[in-house]
Amino acid sequence: MTPATSLFTPVEADLRILADNLKQLVGNRHPILYAAAEHLFGAGGKRIRPAIVLLIARATMLEQDITSRHRRLAEITEMIHTASLVHDDVVDESQMRRGVSTVHSLFGNRIAVLAGDFLFAQSSWYLANLDNLEVVKLLSEVIMDLAAGEIQQGLNRFDTNISIETYLNKSYYKTASLIANSSKAAGILSDVSPETAEHLYNYGRHLGLAFQIVDDIFDFTSSVETLGKPVGSDLKSGNLTAPVLFALAEKPYLEVLIEREFAQEGDLEQALRLIQESQGIQQARELADHHAKLATEHIAVLPPSESRQALINMANYVLSRLY
């Protein structure tokens, strides 16, 4: 499997600049917040979201260099993503993320919530300073979507009646909205046509959905070491994802186990076994494949370039993580 970072060759230098800038953007007026930010941005991470912004910037600015506004948009995108992770970890009570201690496990819940709020506020301030109302609207919508997705997930816990459409809507809010809207915003800063901007939005939307579906499949097929959390932990917390929803149509007893919230000994293990025995994981793979293919079709409208090829490869990489 190709590591994600090898897809970023056209923007490798840009990502190094981004890593330096992120810590400076937070500033050191607040020592605890600065320490939290340094921990977050120093933890590495794949930087997939800002890399997509920078690749789109380069793929739509073939005759000239990308602007400082493109770079700032990539930084804002990573700040919004990081802020959402800090809040997610508080909600999920996660002690570790990708093998690194979470902010709330190091600094406590209060600081973690405030650090997340601070990063959202900081990203909004830098966003306003881009002086582009359309871009401000797109990224402000993302911040609303992130909260809406988290609330929707909380309200739908252990609800076996939710449809695949409801699941995809929640996945859009939680994951795809940021990729879709920042992709479109990068195109707008390059002065692309409204039609091209819409294709960029749809590229990000379908890529983000494929990404989330693949992540949800990992909850059933990966190891504790790879996931950084126990296998089946989404299911245990009542978060019903694509493999579960497909399996429910095939294994009626799964509904009984979920609706009693795995209250009896062995319930969770039995539920995991039923999902493995069903076509649920395979159907979820096909759904991820469908969205990755749509993403590729939308990005193909851009003229050929190394950056466009990297964006196509990104869709293939999302799927290759399954094999």
Rank of each mutant, 00 (worst) to 15 (best):
P31Q: 10
I32W: 04
Y167K: 02
M79Y: 12
L302N: 10
A37D: 02
Q283A: 09
A36Q: 00
E165S: 13
L168E: 01
L227H: 12
H81P: 07
A74L: 05
E141V: 02
A249E: 15
I80S: 05
G116F: 03
T221N: 08
D131S: 15
D92K: 00
A148E: 13
R49E: 07
P304V: 11
L227M: 11
E306A: 15
L257H: 10
V100F: 10
L322V: 01
N156W: 00
R285V: 12
T67I: 07
P10Y: 11
I66W: 03
G228E: 00
I52R: 10
T160F: 01
Y34T: 05
H81C: 07
V103Q: 01
A36E: 03
T9G: 10
D216E: 06
L248K: 08
G108L: 06
L133Q: 12
A115E: 07
R49F: 04
V231E: 08
L227R: 10
G187L: 08
P50M: 06
N132L: 10
Q276N: 13
E198G: 04
N313Y: 12
S307Y: 03
L287G: 01
Y34D: 09
A36I: 00
A115W: 05
R321E: 10
S123I: 07
E286T: 13
K46N: 13
G149Y: 05
Y201H: 08
A51N: 07
R69L: 11
M96I: 01
A112H: 02
Q283I: 01
R47D: 09
K174N: 13
N21S: 15
Y201A: 03
D65G: 15
I151H: 08
E277N: 15
P194K: 10
S222P: 03
D65C: 03
L146V: 06
L138C: 04
H298F: 10
G44P: 02
R98S: 05
M96Y: 11
R47M: 14
L294C: 06
G44H: 01
P50E: 08
F218G: 03
I179C: 00
L130E: 08
P304T: 12
G45C: 08
R49V: 09
A43G: 13
M314Q: 12
P3N: 14
E75I: 09
E165D: 15
T296W: 07
D145I: 00
P303V: 05
V256E: 15
A263M: 09
R71D: 05
I162H: 02
D289R: 11
E225Y: 04
K251V: 12
S193N: 10
N239M: 11
A249S: 11
D234K: 14
A247K: 02
Q212F: 08
S222E: 07
P243L: 08
D88Q: 14
L114Y: 13
P50V: 08
I66E: 01
T296E: 15
L254E: 03
L146M: 14
W125R: 14
T241Q: 09
E195Y: 13
F158T: 01
L73G: 00
